[in-house]
Simulated scan of single mutants.
Amino acid sequence: MRANSDYLMRVTLKNPAIRLALGRFDELTTEGIIRHDADPVAGRLFAGGLASAALMTVLLDEKESYSIRINYKGPVSGMLINARADGRVRGLVRNPHVMTAADSVEMACGDDGASVAVVRSREGKVLNSGEVKTAFIMPSAALGYFLSVSDQVESEIRCEVVFQPDPAAPVRSADGVLMQAMPGCDLEEFGVLRQRLLEPPAGAILRDRMPEPEEELRALLMLLCRTAQPPEHSVTMVEPARFACNCNEERMREMARQMLGEEDFQKLLAEKPDPVIRCQFCGNEYHLKG
């Protein structure tokens, strides 16, 4: 594995009784930002949302998926992200050019926090859903709060995204960690670990580039547990998250037919020589005639 290649791992500890997801999402976040031409403010929020959703895929069983909606009262409006158990992630930010109205994340989101709605499903069948209101505006903190309150599993998510002035590669690094309490976990101890995860040293570990992902994990575990060696743990490398859309010509044509109704759909085909529909998630365009 290249030092800078995307990866995702699932980590389980017995003492303390916690589980982690640790990952690198440079390619995922870069793809999302470029596809939506997101400016630096919208891009920071969107990258955090994509990375956080990617971390949450380790919580899914086979063939399951999350549909995540984060809404703000500010001019950025919000984002919608779909994340699947196999690592396929796609998303959109509703106002990717928010800097015309706001020059900071705080101004873009507004002063009313965020509302977070998450649907967990398997092959189109809803398994569970929930919605919470939170004062957190960064997607990582908002989704960690959602898991703690709606799923009732004490959780924390931290993502560190660093940008660079390169339109072809706007993300220099995007690393994140999800931490959850397991059955039997001392919640007071978890609170201490959570605080350590949110402190600057943990952020520095996520931003630094270590030769191997396992080295980053070891450094993080020793920091969280305040030990000279990482506590006993098991690691499973899973499929790295990637920006992937499930749109295709047939699906987009059927969606247009359902949105317009059969009569208006046929009228559109008769009036326009070559109507085109654009996928809101990936930007791919499809010809409706064919």
Rank of each mutant, 00 (worst) to 15 (best):
F46D: 00
Y66Q: 02
D151Q: 14
E215M: 10
V41Q: 04
A47M: 05
R251W: 01
L8C: 05
L221C: 07
F163M: 13
N82G: 11
L193A: 05
D61R: 05
C279T: 01
I33A: 05
M259V: 09
R253T: 15
A181E: 07
Y286R: 08
E123D: 15
D274C: 09
T100Y: 12
N248G: 13
S115I: 08
M222S: 09
L8V: 00
V192I: 15
A38Q: 07
Y72S: 11
R209C: 11
E189W: 00
F163E: 08
D175H: 12
R88W: 00
V171T: 07
S5I: 10
G130D: 03
G43T: 10
R172D: 14
M259F: 14
A38N: 07
Y66I: 00
F243H: 06
V93L: 03
R44G: 13
Q180M: 11
E156F: 08
M107P: 00
L260M: 15
S5W: 10
H97W: 10
T134E: 10
A38G: 06
C159S: 12
F243Y: 14
Q180R: 11
S148R: 08
L55S: 01
V126M: 14
S129M: 15
C245H: 04
P275F: 12
G124S: 10
G113N: 12
E156Y: 05
L80I: 04
G113H: 09
L221W: 01
R158P: 11
D61C: 00
S155H: 14
R257W: 00
H97I: 02
P201R: 13
V119H: 10
G91W: 00
S148F: 10
I34C: 07
E131H: 12
Y66C: 07
I137G: 01
K133V: 11
A241K: 02
R194W: 03
L22M: 10
D103C: 11
C109N: 06
E106K: 12
C109I: 05
M107C: 12
A102F: 02
A108E: 08
Q164G: 09
G144E: 05
A108L: 07
V98Q: 03
P165A: 10
F46S: 02
S77Y: 12
L220E: 01
K267M: 12
R251T: 00
C279F: 05
E262S: 14
Q164V: 12
Q258R: 15
L187I: 13
V153L: 11
G87M: 04
R69I: 09
R69P: 02
L220G: 04
V171Y: 01
S173K: 09
N71C: 07
D61M: 03
C245N: 06
K73R: 14
E263C: 05
A38H: 05
E232M: 05
M255G: 07
A169R: 15
P273G: 14
Q180P: 00
S173E: 09
R207W: 00
T29F: 08
G261W: 09
V105Q: 10
Q152S: 13
K272R: 15
K73T: 14
T227Q: 15
I34F: 04
M99A: 08
A38V: 08
G283H: 06
D6C: 03
A142M: 09
A244N: 03
N95A: 09
D264N: 13
A181Q: 06
D151L: 08
E215C: 01
E239L: 05
R35I: 04
P40R: 04
Y66D: 00
T134K: 05
M237L: 10
G283K: 04
P275I: 08
